[in-house]
């Protein structure tokens, strides 16, 4: 009897970008929201695929703890076999932001900044309402993200992610102790930099930072990308 394996089937259900094509539907957005913050709303995508593949950007000063280095080598040797996205599981933070082929959309409101993803129709919530982290943050796929403004920079602080996610496609690991700080800053009308700080002493000897440039996608709307798992065959 065959052993069962969940295999991943990609449904390219929709064009990644839909042309909206109606004059006036894409008027330039005001630079600030009514509450005086820079308006990050809109559709964005990574300007390159570089960090999606290797979040360190090839930075040799990123030092993995021995177990993490061994695991990383294993993943590289197997060319990423077993990555969670094969089973339609989310990439986690920050990897889910970095797929150039799959833009995402920021919807900015006073108490939450929501990020909607074309990929797998997922979403993130960055809570800017002043709530604290839960006392007992049981690990999740995306963890818990709190946001606050530091001048014109949105600082998003994420804890509580399961160690099962990979930081990038090449397989940089992390532990449950991971803390990710993303600093979002607009650079003019159509660009935004996100400085990503990875702080995980169990996996990396010291914290490290990388800055990823995002470009605005105009005159388009998110499509719907879905991921289907292979159903289990009868008689396992």
């Amino acid at each position: 009897m065959k052993t069962l394996q969940a295999s991943w089937i990609a449904f390219a259900a929709a064009a990644v970008l839909l042309a909206v094509g109606v004059a006036g539907a894409q008027e330039p957005r005001a630079a600030r929201t009514p509450d005086g913050r820079p308006d990050l709303s809109g559709i964005w995508r990574a300007a390159t695929s570089r960090y999606e593949t290797d979040l360190t950007g090839g930075n040799s000063r990123v030092v993995l703890q021995p177990w993490a280095a061994a695991l990383y080598q294993e993943r590289r040797a197997s060319r990423g076999k077993g990555r969670p996205s094969e089973r339609c599981l989310p990439h986690g933070v920050p990897a889910m932001m970095l797929t150039r082929a799959y833009p995402w959309k920021i919807v900015q409101t006073p108490g939450i900044v929501i990020i909607l993803f074309h990929e797998s129709l997922h979403f993130r919530q960055i809570f800017t309402d002043g709530r604290p982290f839960p006392a007992d943050p049981a690990p999740g796929w995306l963890g818990y993200t709190l946001g606050r403004w530091d001048g014109d920079t949105l600082v998003a602080d994420t804890i509580g992610q399961t160690e099962q996610t990979w930081l990038d496609e090449s397989g940089h690991p992390h532990s449950e102790a991971l803390r990710v700080i993303e600093r979002f800053r607009r650079r003019g009308a159509d660009a935004m930099d996100v400085e990503i700080a990875i702080d995980d002493p169990k996996a990396y000897a010291k914290p490290w930072t990388v800055t990823v440039r995002f470009e605005r996608v105009r005159d388009a709307e998110l499509g719907e990308d879905v991921c289907a798992i292979q159903p289990a065959a009868a008689g396992r």
Partner: peptide, 24 residues
């Protein structure tokens, strides 16, 4: 459930002329 989202556009835009069919 499943961490999915829907968008309801309130800005008066028409439905796109060409769009692949989707679940939502």
């Amino acid at each position: 459930e499943f961490n999915h989202h829907r968008q309801v556009f309130m800005d008066g835009r028409p439905a796109p002329a060409r769009r692949a069919p989707t679940y939502f």
